[in-house]
Amino acid sequence: MKQFNATVFAAMLFAAMLTAATAPAVHAQKWKEIRIGVEGAYPPFSSITESGQLVGFDIDIAWELCKTIGAECALVPQDWDGIIPALLARKYDAIIASMSITEERKKKVAFSNKYYHTPARFVRKKGSGVSISKAGLAGKSVGVQRATTHDNFITGEFGDTVTVKRYGTQDEAYLDLVAGRVDLLIADSVAIDDGFLSTDQGAGFEFVGPSYTDPKYFGEGAGVAIRKRDADLVALFNDAIRTIRANGRYKAINDKYFDFDIYGE
């Protein structure tokens, strides 16, 4: 009898585990709820206001895409360094954080089509006279946000002549540029323009050198990152991006922040 009970118990336990394992998968396919990882330290795309509110282009786009998909959304702020590992660890289902679509990242995650594409540029202190060339940059220090396309670019193209200083957030990099700890900064041109140059902090600084869009480093623009197994969610986001491009909602959000269309070509 005791033996029998143990077998029945084991069977029940197994059945319970099966249900537990399959239930969320069935639920997840409907995508009624989507949790979205965002950054919060990358103005004007995402930042946190004094009252703790998430604001910015990425944030508005995230809410708009959710509305278009018809899902209930929750935004989860996450440091850039751990933003892909946290997606893989299922802390959220998608990343909308100005993440460029690159080959290296595609090994780990799937991407939607791009939702914007802007070039990278250097910024320097006015009158510092730093010029952008192998010789002009020799011995200079350049600040960049760690683990970004800009990090790859500066390391790959100028890593042998400049000192690269890497920061966890773009905001920290701005602090050190203002403090004079780095001679130059490289980042997304729009982020620099709106998040730095047009602020009080950024008065006295200017762009220098060309606009960089080399797909080898900068990929195809910024997309929504999603776990590879969630191909259905990629399709949903692609549809939603197409829809808001067509129905003018994208333009409304775009015009709130920028005086030109940052979607690119």
Partner: peptide
């Protein structure tokens, strides 16, 4: 911004996830 042991680990993590 210093690349100490932990800084090195952060760079490796961010490059290779």
């Amino acid at each position: 911004t210093l690349v100490d042991l932990f800084g090195a680990a952060k760079i490796v993590n961010s490059r290779h996830f």
